[in-house]
Design a protein around this nucleic acid. Structure first.
Lengths: 224, 224
DNA sequence: TTTTAAATAATAGTATTACTATCTTAAATA
DNA sequence: TATTTAAGATAGTAATACTATTATTTAAAA
């Protein structure tokens, strides 16, 4: 039997659980590919249906609209990242190496995790960079938040915040610094590749420079 | 004669210069209001035309599509901010007070500047918080960048980067830190108001806390 | 003053998007 | 075997994002 990694997702994000059927898994798989290829604005359920070989109505039986589908796959990624951080830091004892590990995980394009069959994490990482903030930068953010759509993000933020406090229990802004690290790991990557003058990484386009930048930022900020 | 403040905008953003006619100025004025009220996704040229009392075709004569209109008003704001920073720091001698001033300007909801008749800066500031990153988080970012659509943002980033270097000429990431400050001044505000668990400002919802957070972040990071 | 050009208003039309509804078939379950 | 459940097939609608055309008003040039 294959090893499999699953996360339980907020049921109000979907009409029918996509993890439960082949069509459902195909919807997740192909939407990740298609959102990456076309961008979220140009992504439609019709195109998605065509790429799967089903009909528009078929997709609508799983997700009410494309916004909920986006929130679904992004939430999935936050859960996966949170799991990765827990897993990869559990044997580390000092908070310095933990925090460095966290920054590296956040800022590095991952390889496809074979334990999650229909999800390609490396593409998901790219989606998060370009489309991630569109999940919450909407007029319905307050309603979405009441429905707990952003819990996976908050949990991740909390995980990172806890490690910050391990290093310096007196630091006053662990959650803000955590969300800053997470957002900047993505945004500086986007800038580096598309608007290099907004960064100082123009020449190399190397993720290790972003990691270097974030490490300095974090450790100087929280130093005791 | 009234004092007036104008910025010359990138001509490839518009078909007809909106600063040149009453209808043009109304398009700017009402689109700022309408994007703020409905959010960019629900904003359409038809609604805009109705709110002005003209027709859809009338708006299309000024702007090719709503994306260019968004980039226009956001660029306008970056130019205005850049001007504000120049103006409000020109008599300050030491870089510490300059940087503090910059952070305050970026993170504070401004009052409507009466020198700019048809533009309400306080609403624009809100638009920047909620819609700002949608100007560049698109599939056409590279083409848009070639057309210099983001020059005002880069100029602002440079202004801030210069001040950072004044304080510490050896700091390696002045542009990345500048874009981090600018983005976080907005994003932490959004989080504070809509997703408070991603910040540490939940209770008070006070902008001064964001300023405090950013000041600590910046000065610890670039300290010599 | 007249001519002419430019800007705007009014109206119509199209392809695509974002859905909802219904009906049939196929497969799994009781 | 009967029945629920999922999926496929097809149709339809209101709204969006435009383009095009013609008529009317306004303003600048001759």
């Amino acid at each position: 039997m294959k090893l499999a990694l699953q996360f339980n997702m907020n049921p109000s994000l979907y009409l029918r659980d996509p993890e439960g059927t082949d069509l459902g898994k195909n919807i997740i798989k192909h939407s990740i590919q298609l959102i990456h290829d076309t961008g979220f604005e140009a992504f439609t359920f019709k195109k998605l249906a065509e790429s799967i070989g089903t009909t528009e109505a078929g997709v609508y039986r799983y997700f009410e609209n494309k916004h909920k589908l986006l929130v679904y796959i992004i939430s999935w990624y936050w859960r996966w990242l949170d799991f990765q951080i827990g897993y990869q830091t559990k044997n580390l004892t000092n908070p310095v190496s933990k925090l460095k590990k966290v920054i590296t995980i956040l800022a590095t394009t991952v390889e496809d995790d074979l334990m999650t069959g229909h999800v390609d994490e490396s593409i998901l990482h790219q989606i998060l960079i370009s489309e991630g903030s569109k999940a919450f930068l909407t007029k319905q953010v307050n309603q979405d938040n009441k429905q707990e759509y952003f819990k996976p993000y908050k949990d991740l933020c909390n995980t990172v915040g806890e490690i910050i406090l391990e290093y310096n229990p007196k630091y006053k802004y662990p959650h803000s610094l955590a969300s800053t690290i997470i957002e900047m790991a993505h945004l500086q990557n986007f800038f580096m590749n598309h608007l290099p003058l907004l960064t100082d990484f123009s020449k190399s386009k190397n993720e290790s420079e972003i990691i270097q930048y974030l490490e300095e930022l974090v450790f100087n900020t929280i130093r005791i």
